[in-house]
Design a protein around this nucleic acid. Structure first.
Lengths: 208, 208
DNA sequence: TAGTATAGCATACATTTGTATGTATGTCAA
DNA sequence: TTGACATACATACAAATGTATGCTATACTA
């Protein structure tokens, strides 16, 4: 949910209404009518929707032009040109997104689901070449402390940050696999040496 | 004027109508009604506007939902600068950016230098696997009719659109190389069979 | 020359759509 | 308990809006 709506003190249902209007507008290119909204919300009475609209107008989330068809205007719905930070070398024990690690930004907000918790990391070396990740590519990383088996993750092993495929073999065994036949898998029985920084959710490469 | 509209053979007035719809949508957040359009065009008869809409629909610039208020949808002319079109199958002899080829948009304007002339193409097959381009990846393509030796290009060969590495060996010889050891280079002495659609300038992949 | 497309005006009509006004239920705070 | 509010349904009505039709005029083409 957008941060702006959070501070507006909307009810769950009212947020759902806003989402529905956004979705409809995205899908059709124009806003919904009250009856179309009712259908989208699985509500049978337009009176109910009238109430929603009135409330949202009062809260300043929406403007409705009186007596005009389909004249709903959602405020604050313009998608910001989000930029996600490019993270460089990460020092041991420090948070990844600390300002001193950020070497630039990549303007790819719309491409990722959660730009606020996503960062880019420029890959060095060919350790993931068989996964189609090459030297110089930017991996888009969702910053999260856990991963599922088989995920491509950004991990910190001791003092080094690398990109590997992640497997947990039982409670006390973590295996990090490089997608490169010349490199052997790394196996850790001391799981505290491995810290998951995030999961790779996308990749961007500049060609030429 | 937008390149797309240029190829559609619109009359001056019809272009003006498209501009008016755009302007209205920008100003209000929703499309105009026929009567609002008439007013904006300084035309007193809605019948006139009806004619415009009918013509524009026939030319594929516009979609109007029958019997619905304000349900005008302008195709591809209101494209935000940060979204580039995703081009699907391109029929022979037709412009790549014709509306019927566009299957969606990718919000990565900031990533490319010239979003207005860049589109995305989802790659099918492993013919470029050694260039790190995999099945399902989106290549970001700058729409241009020429390429330099060694560029990765999107070309139309006869009726098929493919991604290959481009080489021109002298005036009458074009060589298209797949980055896959199992595929032999394609050599053309009849250069008219090969049309360069654009040059790959970036790559985006959704992981997971 | 006739035919077609574009451009424009005017009006009647049917449908879509917002508005107003009921009723009822549940929650929460005063 | 009372009052305010969110939620939900139903219906009648008026305004907004698209549709259909007929008319005139100009420009271009076959």
């Amino acid at each position: 949910m957008y941060a702006i709506l959070w501070v507006m003190n909307l009810t769950k249902k009212q947020q759902r209404v806003v989402e529905c209007i956004q979705a409809f507008q995205r899908a059709h290119g124009y806003p919904p009518t009250l009856r179309e909204l009712a259908a989208a919300l699985h509500v049978k009475a337009i009176g109910t929707v009238q109430g929603y609209i009135r409330a949202l107008c009062k809260k300043g989330v929406l403007v409705q032009r009186k007596d005009h068809a389909r004249a709903l205007r959602l405020l604050h719905s313009e998608r910001p040109a989000w930029e996600i930070p490019i993270v460089g070398h990460v020092a041991a024990g420090q948070p990844v997104l600390a300002p001193e690690h950020i070497s630039g930004t990549l303007p790819c907000g719309g491409l990722v689901a959660d730009p606020q918790h996503t960062f880019a990391l420029q890959v060095r070396g060919d350790s993931m070449i068989n996964a189609g990740i090459r030297d110089g590519d930017f991996v888009l990383v969702h910053h999260q402390p856990t991963a599922r088996n088989g995920d491509i993750v950004v991990v910190r092993v001791d003092d080094e940050v690398t990109v590997k495929r992640f497997f947990r073999d039982g409670a006390q065994r973590i295996r990090l696999v490089a997608e490169n036949p010349t490199m052997a898998p790394l196996v850790f029985t001391d799981t505290s040496r491995v810290e998951i920084i995030g999961v790779v959710v996308g990749l961007y490469r500049r060609v030429k």
